[in-house]
């Protein structure tokens, strides 16, 4: 009798000793079987509200104090975040599969337009506008990437954190395509379009960008997890996306740039996914703690005007396109879009 089979026979009997058929994680509370999404997300943040401190270091370790202050110490609390579900229910595998198909579409789009020698046929006045309005948006897009990654690492449940990771990656997706377009345009319209120093100078000095730069820089230091989430997902990002996805997509279409028109309509799908997640999380919280309507309302108030001033600064540039859009028309679109979004959560 070989050791292998002998051991297995005895091993099974002995190892099987107290075997109970387990259908789910022991930390799963519901009777039904969890979905794959739930299996790989449920209660992953064991460190939230862990005593005496989240992490196995001195309780006064700077990062223990940071989490105790900005997460456990945030006014944005509910008893149990673990029942929240992101409407899109994305696991990592779902996310990369979803975005592969979308990136395939955008690659196809660029292919089709490049075959028509699209860049060279764009009017110079339009390209000049892109240099000031569009190309520097990789800086603002990067800030949104950073702020999503921040509230994601601070969120009290992996159901929330993971949606934040994917939102941060979506920002990287959008800004990388703007980098590609900047380089492609530069081959027909001049090296300056792909010159990092010049683009940074516009972001740092051009008056149209300064209100946006101000609200973005301040967004980076809103360290309370609730405020970071609200400022980003309930105010700055929806306002920014209404401007740089929806309004800008329309402006591009008006000016014969259907490549940017269709690309930014595609990016708006990512923004809508982030919006749906945001609405679901806010409803989840306000249903459990009605006072959060007041709390979220106060944060919205704090960030709304700076975000609108930021949009207004860039909206002024919309007028300068060959077929321009009036600044007020752009701002009406942005404000209406933002109000409709807030109304979905009863926070208008």
């Amino acid at each position: 009798m070989s050791k292998e089979s002998g051991a297995r026979a005895r091993g099974d009997r002995q190892v099987g000793g107290l075997r109970r058929k387990r259908k789910a994680w022991s930390l799963w509370e519901e009777r039904r079987v969890p979905s794959d999404y739930e299996v790989v997300s449920h209660r992953f943040h064991y460190h939230f509200r862990r005593e005496p401190a989240p992490f196995d270091l001195d309780p006064n370790h700077p990062i223990n104090r940071w989490y105790l202050k900005h997460r456990e110490g945030s006014p944005f609390q509910v008893d149990d975040w673990e029942q929240f579900r992101d409407p899109a229910r994305l696991t990592y595998k779902d996310y990369v599969t979803l975005q592969k198909d979308r990136e395939l579409y955008v690659d196809q789009l660029i292919d089709d337009f490049e075959r028509e020698d699209h860049y060279r046929r764009l009017p110079k006045a339009w390209v000049d506008l892109l240099e000031v309005l569009y190309i520097p948006s990789r800086f603002s897009g990067h800030v949104l990437q950073m702020s999503a990654m921040y509230w994601a690492q601070m969120a009290p449940s992996a159901y929330i954190t993971n949606a934040g990771y994917f939102q941060g990656a979506d920002e990287l997706r959008r800004l990388q395509r703007s980098a590609y377009i900047a380089k492609a345009l530069s081959l027909d319209h001049g090296e300056h379009l792909a010159d990092s120093e010049r683009t940074r100078a516009i972001w740092e000095d051009d008056p149209h960008w300064q209100p946006m730069r101000e609200v973005m820089e301040k967004l980076l230091i809103a360290y309370d997890w609730g405020e970071s989430f609200v400022a980003t997902n309930l105010v700055v990002k929806p306002v920014y996306d209404a401007l740089m996805n929806v309004a800008f997509s329309g402006l591009a279409e008006q000016n014969g740039d259907d490549l940017l028109h269709l690309m930014h309509r595609d990016f708006q799908l990512d923004s809508e996914r982030a919006a749906n997640f945001t609405v679901a999380l806010v409803r989840y919280a306000t249903e459990r703690v009605s006072d959060h309507r007041r709390l979220l309302g106060e944060w919205i108030e704090k960030w709304r005007e700076p975000a609108y001033r930021a949009a207004e600064g860039l909206a002024a540039l919309f007028e300068k396109a060959p077929h321009g859009m009036a600044k007020e028309a752009v701002m009406d679109l942005v404000r209406a879009s933002h109000r409709t979004f807030l109304e979905r959560m009863g926070l208008a």
Binding site: D107, I110, D111, E114, R138, F139, H142, L175, Q176, A179, Y180, A182, K183, A184, A194, S196, T199, R200, W203, E204, Q210, R213, E214, E217, K218, L220, I221
Partner: peptide, 24 residues
């Protein structure tokens, strides 16, 4: 496939560094 190789535009995907004005 888009005509530009990664190396052609890669540096523009990672130059988003700047001096802060409204915060330290």
């Amino acid at each position: 496939m888009p005509k530009l190789e990664r190396s052609a535009y890669y540096d523009l995907t990672r130059d988003m560094n700047w001096r802060f004005k409204y915060v330290r």
